[in-house]
Design a binder for these strands. Structure first.
Length: 851
DNA sequence: GACTGAACTATACC
DNA sequence: ACGGGTATAGTTCAGTC
């Protein structure tokens, strides 16, 4: 154990106040009560542990019209509750009566204090008595409950003071077992005006290499570690090489795998990071290390209290280290970042390339037994570079983690793993006190089942476009449409009225447009009195606008991260209401939101047409029209006019002006395809939506040819150049001048291989990979190409011609011509009345330009 | 065995 | 189980003749 600095007792009264920023929250029991343990830093970078406690309670909501005497009886009954469970004695400490709100309804509720948070559920079970309608507030988790109760928020600065625990017996000697600089029992905490950005987190990135991908199956060959002043690869392989080669000064040699793991732990302890960061480390690196440590019967004691990582098995494995925040960057990127990245996969290589402009080291994997002496050097470099990239990514993404943590008021460990609904829900739960609201409970398993059994909702409206080339296009879209609808019409679970209010002349309620719900036409009605949920949505909406403006005015990683945190939050609110697992789920509210979305979009279309513009396209919250001879100012005036007619906080904004745009037909029929168009803005930037160009399951050549054709056509407004270009490409394909690399098709395996009912080409390719001993898991991207028939049969399926990229073979000219290149471009030329097939086959010469 | 619509599958848009 | 519905399009499957 690391020695702790001795604190001079005589100075205690002067030093027992610290500036403190909380990073990680955990809790423990002592003498049957719960104590929170916050690990953080002071302003000098010392590691602090703050111990604190808070009231533990749940709510019992009383029946309406309950009599005072009855309440007294209930209180008396509850006050005597004592439980002896799970080796604990827990009892109700006291009971108070409060005027609260639940789902916007005023209620009388009992605040029932108990000794241990973990027992609240059992206490709630004892409250199944007459007079008590609902029991709430015992399923938040103790850390969340504590943060709400004491308002000691993650990643905000506090001035804290209290009793310093120095080799104290208190709390079972917690400070002795903990590797921190100072441990205090909190007495006072005061929020101070110090920027969260002042805190510089200490990251340590790690990555391990092994022969077998299945957890624990192979040996760990090496582990790399990178922090601000450290680059290291620990290995027990290729000892001689290291001795001979002083280039490899970052390599540290140990005698075997067990020592490798112990060395890793030693380094982590020495560096003592705030965050231990990996890439897919929840699912791979950390559990792998744990499994190998178990195999060698050694302890992976990474925690500040020397505990081993604990794993939670949810949908995916989650690895937690006591006192050090373990972050799996891939998980955070997957959930909160992916939709704003252009990378086609979320591999470390692609993501690092996009975000920090660096790639992985090239290295061709081999089993370690087959690695040549000199190749180890490359392997070490490769391993190190992975940690270098992970470290740089962590620093790059830090502002986003920080802003999510501040927004959600939840610790980084959780925030980095939250799905979209959890971000919304955390924001709601941490702001309920402003509205005196008792939290709703998580839906039960049965409730979720019921919600999932409901018929699917009808979603947004998409305008049927006419295929063609258009000029001078304007795009408007609604600002945070779903969220602003919730606010403008006060839509939520709590504000929903059971039935249409009757006999009122002036409407004092909101009425949804007519909609189809469970196969019936109906409307829903909502209170006028603003509910807490819509009011919180208003806060999200306003902050989203404000932070977006601030970012535009003053771009910085922090202002960008703040803006994008609220962007994500705002964009997820409706999904949250519609989500069956949400505490504040409401299908009535969700369906009403969608009905308003359709109505408002259609109204905008009508008004645009009434104003004399030709509407080209619209999808959900956007509308595109041709401004023809109208100048930009006239368009802006029209926008203002539209806005003046919109209800509540609804607002349309000018998305952009475009020089040209193209809409094409569907592959079958003459109708225009929805969700498929391309635009050229006034700075000559292309914006392509839905076309094969942006689809990763088309080969590179088809995508590239299509995007070039679109570019030429939009820039020139004519097709000649593009047509000649396509003819050249076709010639190249026929002459086998195209490199195989450009013909690789990539398709993701979405589920385990054996679950496929239809055996499609990518399933065949995956089976081939499996045969070669490659790890085939759901989620991986399968690469293959279509080769010439080997059997020569006429009626051969595509899958029979599948070959892996490294398999020798010749590409199938026919396939790439007729199933990749031509389909990608032919309906673009059709806009000019050109039949590409006829032109290519030379059957009929369509006159160019006679459209 | 050829043809055809349905089913299955992946991926995009908002 | 861990945000929703709308939409296009390829390939295979299964039923028909």
């Amino acid at each position: 154990m690391t020695l702790k600095p001795l604190i001079n007792i005589s100075n205690l009264s002067q030093v027992n106040s610290f500036k403190f920023i909380p990073i990680d929250y955990d809790y423990f029991d002592w003498q049957q009560r719960n104590y929170i343990r916050i690990i953080g830093r002071d302003d000098k970078g010392k590691r602090l542990c703050v111990i604190d406690s808070c009231d533990v309670y749940l709510w019992a909501i009383l029946e309406k019209d309950i009599k005072e005497k009855e309440i007294k009886n209930i209180i008396n009954k509850i006050s005597t509750i004592k439980l002896d469970i799970k080796g604990r004695q827990t009892k109700v400490d006291k009971v108070e009566i409060h005027n609260k709100k639940f789902l916007d309804e005023p209620v009388k509720a009992l605040k029932i204090f108990a000794t241990n948070y973990k027992d609240l559920h059992d206490i709630a079970d004892k409250l199944d008595m007459k007079g008590i309608e609902k029991r709430r507030g015992y399923d938040l988790g103790f850390e969340t409950h504590y943060i709400i109760e004491k308002q000691i928020l993650p990643l905000q600065w506090y001035e804290v003071s209290g009793e310093i625990l120095n080799n104290s017996e208190k709390f079972g000697g917690i400070d002795i077992a903990l590797d921190v600089d100072i441990c205090i029992k909190l007495e006072k905490a005061r929020k101070i005006e110090k920027n969260s950005a002042d805190f510089k987190p200490k990251f340590l990135a790690y990555d391990l290499e092994c022969d077998e991908f299945q957890i624990g199956k192979g040996e760990i060959l090496m582990i790399s570690l990178v922090s601000e002043n450290l680059k290291k690869v620990i290995t027990w392989k290729a000892k001689n090489l290291i001795k001979d080669n002083n280039l490899l000064e970052y390599v540290e040699y140990v005698k075997d795998e067990a020592e490798l793991i112990e060395k890793f732990v030693e380094h982590v302890k020495k560096i003592s990071p705030d965050f231990l960061v990996g890439y897919f480390s929840d699912g791979f690196d950390l559990p792998y290390m744990k499994a190998r440590a178990e195999k060698h019967k050694i302890k992976l004691s990474l925690g500040l209290d020397n505990s081993q990582p604990r794993f939670h098995r949810g949908n995916i494995l989650t690895g937690r280290i006591s006192g050090i925040v373990h972050i799996d960057l891939l998980r955070f990127i997957q959930i909160a970042y992916a939709q704003y990245l252009s990378s086609e996969t979320l591999s470390l290589n692609e993501v690092a390339n996009e975000l920090i402009g660096e790639r992985k080291t090239e290295f061709k994997f081999k089993h370690s037994s087959k690695i040549e002496h000199s190749e180890w050097l490359k392997y070490f470099e490769y391993n190190l570079q992975d940690s270098v990239l992970t470290f740089k990514l962590a620093e790059k993404i830090w502002p986003d983690l920080l802003e999510f943590s501040i927004t959600d008021e939840e610790p980084i460990f959780d925030v980095s793993r939250f799905g979209l609904s959890k971000h919304v829900e955390s924001f709601i739960l941490h702001n309920l006190d402003k509205y005196n609201e008792i939290p709703e409970k998580r839906p039960t398993y049965e409730e979720i089942g019921k919600r999932k059994n409901q018929l699917p909702s009808v979603g947004a409206f998409v305008f049927q476009p006419s295929p063609g080339l258009y000029e001078d296009i304007v795009f408007f879209d609604f600002t945070s449409m779903h969220t602003s609808i919730i606010v403008s019409f006060n839509l939520s679970k709590g504000t929903l009225l059971e039935k249409k209010p009757s006999g009122k002349k002036d409407k004092d309620y909101y009425e949804s447009p007519e909609l189809e719900f469970q196969s019936k036409k109906t409307r829903f009605y909502f209170k006028k009195q603003p509910g807490f949920f819509p009011q919180l949505c208003k806060e999200i909406f306003e902050k989203r606008k404000k932070f977006k403006a601030e970012y535009k005015q003053n771009p910085s990683p922090i202002s960008k991260a703040r803006s994008s945190a609220f962007k994500v939050l705002s964009a997820s609110v409706h999904g949250y209401v519609a989500f069956f697992g949400a505490r504040y789920h409401s299908s009535e509210a969700s369906n009403s939101i969608l009905a308003f979305v359709r109505q408002l979009n259609k109204q905008a279309i009508e008004k645009t047409e009434q104003a004399g513009y030709k509407v080209i396209y619209a999808d959900t919250d956007s509308i595109a029209f041709s401004r023809a001879k109208a100048n930009k100012q006239e368009v802006k005036d029209f926008l203002n006019n539209l806005n003046s007619q919109l209800p509540g906080i609804m607002e349309l904004e000018l998305e952009d002006f475009y020089k040209r745009g193209i809409w094409v037909t569907k592959r079958s029929g003459d109708l225009g395809a929805k969700k498929k168009y391309a635009l050229l803005d006034e700075k000559d930037n292309l914006k392509i939506r839905g076309f094969e160009t942006v689809r990763r399951d088309w080969c590179g050549l088809a995508r590239e040819v299509q995007s070039k054709v679109i570019k030429m056509i939009l820039e020139e407004g004519k097709n000649e150049k593009a047509l000649n270009f396509v003819k050249e490409i076709i010639k190249k394909i026929k002459n086998r001048q195209v490199s195989l690399q450009d013909l690789i098709i990539k398709t993701q395996l979405k589920k385990p291989l054996e679950e496929y009912k239809a055996i499609s080409p990518h399933v065949i390719a995956a089976r081939k990979m499996l045969k070669q001993g490659m790890p085939i898991d759901a989620g991986i991207l399968i690469s293959y190409y279509i080769s010439e028939s080997s059997t020569g049969k006429k009626k051969e399926l595509v899958r029979d011609k599948v070959k892996l990229p490294e398999e020798k073979g010749q590409y199938d000219i026919e396939y790439y011509l007729n199933r990749q290149i031509l389909p990608a471009v032919e309906n673009i030329f059709q806009v000019f009345n050109l039949d590409l097939k006829e032109i290519i086959d030379g059957k009929k010469q369509t006159k160019l330009g006679d459209f």
